[in-house]
Design a binder for these strands. Structure first.
Length: 414
RNA sequence: GCGGGCGUAGCUCAAUCGGUAGAGCGCCAGAUUGUGGCUCUGGAGGUAGCAAGUUCGAAACUUGUCGCCCGCCCCA
């Protein structure tokens, strides 16, 4: 027996409607926010993620599905959606279209990690990326889109917001962090020590008890924002407040992908285990230029579809019912079964979902089966019906029966 | 990569002290004549994850191995 690869999931018959429900909500949000769908390949040149996501990140360092193709090129299954979207934007010259370029995608993503609640090796994201606008209105709009998406699905989360500044103020802040931590770095964990030089911002994320006590009093990024960044952040906050979007400023959220700058945010739940971030994103004004194109500001987010589904299931959110067959047509012998086949074919042709017997069951068993399928009506064709052209159609909900002429079946069901 | 828990029927799970495998659900068939849900009866379905070891005897004990789950790191 060959079983499913670790960290992947099957979607069973009768379950995909949940996916469709979430995806439909995503597309509906995208429609009203005027976001246009893009699709990028499942794999890209490894270099794209190294440069885009950042060489120091865990995602790039230890979580990528990287392989060599038959031509000796290094390829990587996308670990997230932003780098590919940025590549698409650059490669297709979208910088010369009217700004901003507002996009969204629904995509699988792959990260080689130990699976746990809310973490798969293949997972799916609904993401939006808006290119070309530096203004805080765009930040607020993107956050609003995420918020609206989550509202539509009926899930409740908390929005945490921060600004990690631009290159200028972050350099200042990094200096301050280094100074602050340098005194006690020998008492801190190994990863923190290595982060001190490479990326001191990441120390703030450390959950080691020994490190936490030093982190507690570390300088806050929000005190180091340059004038422009501080103003930008105020703008975002006031727009969100004006729209009644609740949030808390959490100076600790720094995000693990290198491309972020200025506004960063997470929608968090405590209902789905340790991996509580259901949606995360931020501004990444440096990414496009890091990838070698003319500097272009951008902002986006990604929401984890499996995490959302977990959250919805754990909190009893209601998915709409899956569509059931409109009618089941039961035949009895070779002749009437043939007639049932034909009637079903005609109804399907006209858009009515119809089912028939495939297992040579008795009439009684066919009724049982039709009931299990949830068919709304069952029509029986026996010798009498065949001769008269009038079907007995039973409403399975209330048990009533009606005589319906064969030719009028469609309008009866419509 | 590191920690903890768990592997018995399709699913959820039982079985005093080690004595040779069960239930519920689901599936199939039946309870007279062409009609579902409720009920009843019968049936199919298991290499006890796998491999060693201890024992007269292992689902149970030991070791290894594989798998799953949860947590750490990090992220959606």
């Amino acid at each position: 027996m060959i079983n499913i690869p670790k960290g992947t999931k099957d979607v069973l018959p009768g379950q995909a409607y949940k996916w469709r429900y979430i995806e439909d909500a995503a597309r509906e949000v995208a429609r009203v926010f005027n976001l246009s769908e893009i699709r990028t390949p499942t794999f890209e040149h490894t270099e794209l993620f190294k440069r885009g996501v950042g060489e120091t990140t865990d995602v790039v360092n230890k979580e990528m599905y990287t392989f060599e193709d038959k031509g000796g090129r290094s390829m990587t299954l996308k670990p997230e959606g932003t780098a590919g979207a940025a590549r698409l934007f650059i490669e297709n010259g979208l910088m010369s279209s009217p700004m901003p370029v507002k996009t969204f995608y629904i995509t699988p993503a792959f990260r080689y990690e130990r699976p746990q609640a809310g973490r798969l090796r293949e997972f799916h994201q609904f993401g939006i990326e808006v290119f070309g606008s530096p203004s805080f209105e765009t930040d607020a709009e993107v956050i609003l889109a995420a918020s609206s998406f989550l509202d539509r699905l009926g899930v409740s989360t908390k929005l945490e917001l921060n600004s990690i500044g631009c290159r200028v103020c972050r350099a200042e802040y990094n200096k301050a962090l280094k100074n602050y931590f340098a005194a006690n770095i020998d008492c801190m964990c190994e990863t923190c020590r290595s982060r001190l030089e490479k990326n001191p911002l990441r120390i703030l994320d450390c959950k080691e008890e020994g490190c936490k006590k030093f982190i507690k009093d570390a300088p806050l990024i929000t005190d180091y924002l340059c004038g422009e960044c501080a103003e930008h952040f105020e703008g975002v906050k006031s727009l969100l407040t004006a729209q009644g979007v609740e949030f808390t400023v959490n100076p600790r959220i720094v995000r693990g992908l290198d491309y972020y700058s200025k506004t960063v945010f997470e929608f968090v739940s405590d209902e789905i285990g340790a991996q509580g971030t259901v949606c995360g994103g931020g501004r990444y004004d440096g990414l496009i230029s890091d990838l070698g194109a003319a500097a272009t500001p951008a902002i986006g987010f990604a929401a984890g579809i499996e995490r959302l589904m977990l959250l919805m299931e754990n909190t009893g959110a209601n998915f709409p019912e899956e569509q059931k067959p409109r009618i089941y047509i039961a035949g009895m012998d070779a002749q009437t079964r043939g007639a049932a086949f034909k009637i079903a074919a005609e109804l399907r042709e006209k858009g009515i979902s119809a089912e028939i017997d495939h297992m040579n069951r008795s009439v009684k068993a066919q009724f049982k089966y039709a009931d299990k399928l949830g068919a709304q009506y069952v029509a029986v064709i026996g010798g009498n019906e065949l001769a008269s052209g009038v079907l007995t159609v039973k409403n399975m909900k209330d048990g009533t029966q009606a005589a319906v002429k064969c030719g009028e079946l469609y309008s009866y069901l419509k």
